[in-house]
Amino acid sequence: MSTTDTDQDQDFIAAPSPTEQIVAPSPTEQVVAPSKPPRARVSDAVDPEESAGAKLERKRDYLEGFLQKKPEGANAGEPGGELYEKVIAALKEIYDPEIPVNIYDLGLIYGVEVGPESDVIVTMTLTTPHCPVAESMPGEVELRAASVPGVRDAEVNLVWDPPWSPEKMTDEARLELGML
């Protein structure tokens, strides 16, 4: 019973690395266990000179400035540009009458191009060629895009190739429709 108690009190040594050679001690040589490395302590990691306010300031969201910054050198008509983003916002206000999702998130808008003279060309499709709003939806898209301040003229190109499919919807639209 006393042998198990002494085994529990004994410090164990980690196995040697594969590159380390093991030399057996001679019978007269005394074996000395290598010393253990010091334990990591929380007090070693804490900077005593850093105040609580400085620590809180350091922990603020490091992406805060990054997410608010606009792309450098983006023209008003390029993705990320002011006019382009306003046109997209206007298109997101148009809802499909049969589906309670805006046409942008539904994936009906294939492209928005803003020309150097603030002319907007919207390439879009509809869910099917026999859609009940096939006659009125392109006109509404053209009116909304043209009504954005700064847009000189708007044009809509209605295309059927590639055909629309549910895979073109954003995750937000799928969630709204219960498809996720």
Score class of each variant (00 low, 15 high):
Leu126Val: 08
Val120Gln: 06
Ser136Arg: 09
Met179Ala: 07
Pro132Gly: 07
Asp9Val: 14
Gln10Lys: 11
Glu155Val: 05
Asp11Ser: 13
Ala40Val: 08
Ala146Asn: 00
Asp119Tyr: 11
Leu158Ser: 03
Gly73Ala: 04
Tyr110Glu: 08
Asn75Gly: 14
Glu142Asp: 10
Ala52Thr: 15
Val23Phe: 09
Ala45His: 09
Val151Arg: 01
Leu177Gly: 04
Asp9Glu: 11
Asn157Gln: 13
Ala52Met: 11
Glu167Cys: 04
Glu20Trp: 06
Gln8Asp: 11
Glu98Pro: 02
Val141Asn: 07
Val87Ile: 09
Leu67Glu: 11
Val151Ser: 05
Asp61Ile: 06
Pro25Ile: 03
Asp105Lys: 01
Thr19His: 15
Ile13Gly: 03
Asp11Thr: 10
Glu117Ile: 01
Arg174Ser: 03
Ala15Pro: 02
Pro163Ala: 14
Ser2Pro: 02
Ala15Phe: 12
Val133Asn: 04
Pro71Glu: 05
Pro116Arg: 14
Met179Ile: 12
Thr3Val: 13
Glu82Trp: 00
Asp161Pro: 01
Ser51Phe: 07
Pro71Tyr: 00
Val112Arg: 01
Leu126Asp: 00
Glu29Gln: 12
Gly53His: 10
Ser118Thr: 04
Ala14Gly: 12
Ala14Trp: 10
Val122Phe: 04
Glu142His: 09
Lys59Ile: 10
Gly80Arg: 09
Asn157Met: 06
Pro38Leu: 09
Pro149Ile: 03
Cys131Ser: 05
Leu158Ala: 02
Ser35Leu: 13
Arg174Gly: 00
Arg41Trp: 03
Leu126Lys: 03
Val151Met: 05
Arg60Asn: 06
Arg41Ser: 08
Met124Thr: 09
Glu82Lys: 08
Val87Glu: 00
